[in-house]
Design a protein around this nucleic acid. Structure first.
Length: 446
RNA sequence: CGGGGCGUGGCGCAGCUUGGUAGCGCGACGGUUUUGGGUACCGUAGGUCGUAGGUUCGAAUCCUAUCGCCCCGACCA
């Protein structure tokens, strides 16, 4: 993309309404525009990152054997009357009437709807296990939306629902999600720690929240420092192997890591003193096993191998996709702007032409731009007639992890400069070498 | 939902106490200049001062109502 043809309304000054750094940077980098309290338009740059994150979620869900579908944002109230939650949910649920006076609602979650789909089409143990998920807009009419997309009223979320014939299978589904989520967050450059949590209004027995450590987090967290060093990495996981998946979950949940909701002082004090940490975290996902809460209320049953009809065992699992943009920025920025991890960056690299209009510099930039595209990398080429300082400031603000700087001075020596946004280090090399280096870097983030 | 604050060109703000017909910085646009970290100068455009009503010869300024947004708390993915 040539910047002169893109839509990137960056701001030099901080908008007054934004307090926390991710909100400020998203506004300044031209990623979002608030339309009303807690509701945002996603401008091109923000939309690109949102889609990158969603794509990673899809890839990791598919890897775990889960199946995508799409449910609507608007739901009939009757389904929620069946589960009893229409009355229970309170003011957070946005209730609407259609022209016929029917009660509708903008879905805050989808347990009822997915259970309805299930009971309409599935009746046998032979169809299990089954995991259906979608990524869709949700709405919770928060009393006080704040922190930009981290706590909006409208939010984009992946929610998945598992159906199993018995509790042991359902717990495997739970574990499978934990492992899939671990890899999902790692690919986004995050350290997200699964912590034992409260089940809240969804209800259930087992639940973990995934928290990204950040000073601005809404939850107080208590953890063993060693838990932050665990990584799933590139290890191949057989998601059908219950023991293997359970072993990974044990590895990640044995060390102490809890939110204030479930914090246990005595257990925490058993952690070696030099590894004991208290901090704050941003919740970016949660997994639940809740058994037959909805299937019993809504009559979602299956016939087992021995001929009995039993309510299906269920769980649900969510990732806050839109919230993740805020969380990633909170975890990865400096005083100049955002620093995107390679896995979610909106463009793989930026090209800064230091002397727009100089025939040689222009030609070198064009050629780099094409070479990157040919290698499957998307570049943002700053071809504006701005001074170098302005171009650098924009690139730093929007946070592309790699920048190629092209100017007459370097070209005279046959080199361009490849700069890491994260470390600030620059290396001079030929344009060809810079492209090759970027290809190599991004090969590790596929 | 309790408490507090703010609505003035695209953005950030001043002006309001002590009413007299709107100003600054940034940005945009045009020009000259400059060109390796937000260049300097000159010029141009852009505002029913959130909205409605009231007081007054006269309201951004005072009064009333209303809408919106932000912050703290409670709540929450």
């Amino acid at each position: 993309m040539r910047l002169s043809r893109y839509f990137l309304p960056v701001l030099k000054e901080n908008p007054a309404e934004a307090q926390i750094v991710s909100h400020r940077l998203m506004l300044r980098a031209g990623m979002i525009k608030q339309q009303t309290a807690g509701i945002y338009s996603w401008l091109p740059l923000g939309f690109k990152v949102l889609k990158r994150i969603e794509q990673i979620v899809h890839e990791e869900q598919e890897r775990a054997g889960h199946i995508a579908l799409l449910m609507p944002t608007l739901q009939p109230a009757d389904l929620w009357r069946e589960s009893g939650r229409y009355e229970d949910y309170g003011q957070e649920m946005l209730r609407i009437k259609d022209r016929h006076g029917r009660d509708m609602l903008y879905g805050p979650t989808n347990e009822e709807m997915i259970t309805d789909i299930f009971r309409s089409h599935v009746g046998s143990y032979k169809d299990l296990p089954l995991t259906l998920y979608h990524v869709q807009w949700k709405f919770r009419d928060e009393v006080r939306p704040r922190f930009g997309v981290m706590r909006g009223r409208e939010f984009y979320m992946k929610d998945g629902y598992t159906f199993d014939v018995d509790k042991a299978s359902a717990l495997h589904a739970y574990n499978r999600h934990m492992v899939a989520y671990l890899r999902t967050y790692e690919r986004m450059g995050l350290t997200a720690i699964p912590m034992r949590a409260d089940s809240g209004p969804i209800g259930g027995d087992d639940t973990h929240e995934f928290l990204v450590l950040a000073e601005t987090g809404e939850s107080e967290v208590f953890y063993d420092q060693a838990v932050t060093e665990l990584t799933l990495g590139e290890r191949a996981v057989d998601f059908d192997n219950r023991d293997e998946v359970a072993a990974i979950c044990d590895e990640f949940t044995t060390l102490y890591a809890r939110t204030d909701e479930t914090h246990d002082e005595a257990l925490f004090n058993a952690v070696p003193e030099d590894r004991r940490r208290v901090g704050r975290g941003i919740e970016v996902g949660q997994i639940f096993y809740f058994g037959t809460k909805y299937s019993e209320a809504m009559g979602a049953t299956v016939v087992t191998q021995d001929g009995n009809r039993v309510p299906v065992e269920m769980g649900s699992h969510g990732i806050g996709v839109s919230r993740l943009l805020g969380a990633i920025i909170e975890a990865s920025h400096d005083d100049k702007g955002i620093i995107w991890p390679e896995g979610v960056t909106p463009f793989h690299a930026g090209i800064v032409n230091l002397k727009q209009g100089d025939a040689e510099a222009d030609a070198a930039c064009e050629s780099l731009y094409k070479a990157l595209a040919g290698a499957g990398l998307e570049a943002l080429y700053d071809d504006r007639s701005e001074r170098a300082g302005a171009k650098f400031a924009t690139m730093d603000l929007i946070g592309l992890p790699w920048r190629i700087t092209v100017g007459p001075r370097g070209l005279a020596k046959g080199v361009v400069e490849l700069t890491s946004r994260r470390s600030g280090e620059s290396v001079e090399m030929s344009p060809e070498a810079a492209v090759a280096r970027l290809v190599e870097i991004y090969a590790q983030h596929r």
